[in-house]
């Protein structure tokens, strides 16, 4: 495991914890797209089915378990405990526009045509677009709470670090996984616009609001 990979995982975990703490402390999930969070829960569920079939390391098993728990707790807080604060009106991204192409593509373009492998591929493709309902919500309302932008920043940073991890692995192990790399690049591109706003506005102490 290289430094980019471990920092990527830490960023990912930090992003999820920031979101949970934000919701828990403010007792509100205002500004958070429940749809994106449901998609992430589906992503982890379909990807980590190998918890039952493969053992890699204690680290791998524990992290997968923690990621799954974070995702499910977040969904529960949004649609359960704090559902009165959930902004259903502005969370209006049509999920079928993501789920249908992603499902189709995972059947067409995968490493091997087996149930677990198709589900893994589905999870990789879905993860690359899962944040779109959240970004759509921000563009619709025209603003985001600063803490929400920190969440998005660490989520984007995770992807950027994973790209560095793949370059590193390609150089040192001659290893690469085309499906993961292409999806990772696509996903990181979605964050570029946000990164720009984050650096030019949020880091200078301003709230993220769109003109």
């Amino acid at each position: 495991m290289n430094i980019f990979r471990i920092l990527g995982d830490v960023s990912h975990l930090l992003a999820m914890i920031i979101l949970l703490v934000k919701i828990w402390r403010s007792k509100s999930c205002a500004g958070i797209s429940g749809k994106s969070q449901v998609l992430f829960a589906i992503v982890f569920t379909s990807r980590y089915l190998d918890l039952f079939t493969n053992f890699f390391s204690i680290y791998n098993t524990v992290m997968k378990f923690v990621f799954l728990m974070c995702a499910y707790i977040t969904v529960y807080l949004i649609y359960g405990k704090f559902r009165k604060t959930f902004d259903n009106e502005n969370d209006s991204f049509r999920l079928e526009f993501l789920l249908i192409p992603v499902t189709g593509l995972s059947f067409l373009e995968n490493q091997s045509f087996t149930p677990l492998e198709i589900l893994w591929t589905f999870s990789i493709y879905l993860e690359s677009v899962a944040i779109l309902p959240q970004l759509f919500m921000i563009s619709k309302t025209g603003e985001a709470e600063t803490i929400t932008t920190h969440y998005l920043f660490f989520l984007g940073l995770y992807h950027a670090l994973y790209l560095a991890n793949w370059i590193w692995r390609y150089q040192t192990e001659n290893y690469y996984d085309q499906i993961a790399v292409v999806s990772g690049v696509v996903q990181t591109i979605f964050y570029c616009d946000f990164f720009y706003l984050y650096v030019t506005k949020v880091l200078k102490g301003k709230k993220l609001s769109l003109p």
């Binding site: 990807r47 190998d50 992290m63 997968k64 192990e173 290893y175 996984d177």
Partner: peptide, 10 residues
């Protein structure tokens, strides 16, 4: 290129 046998990343 190493043949991929399993997904060891998160």
């Amino acid at each position: 290129i190493v043949a991929k046998t399993a997904h060891d990343e998160l």
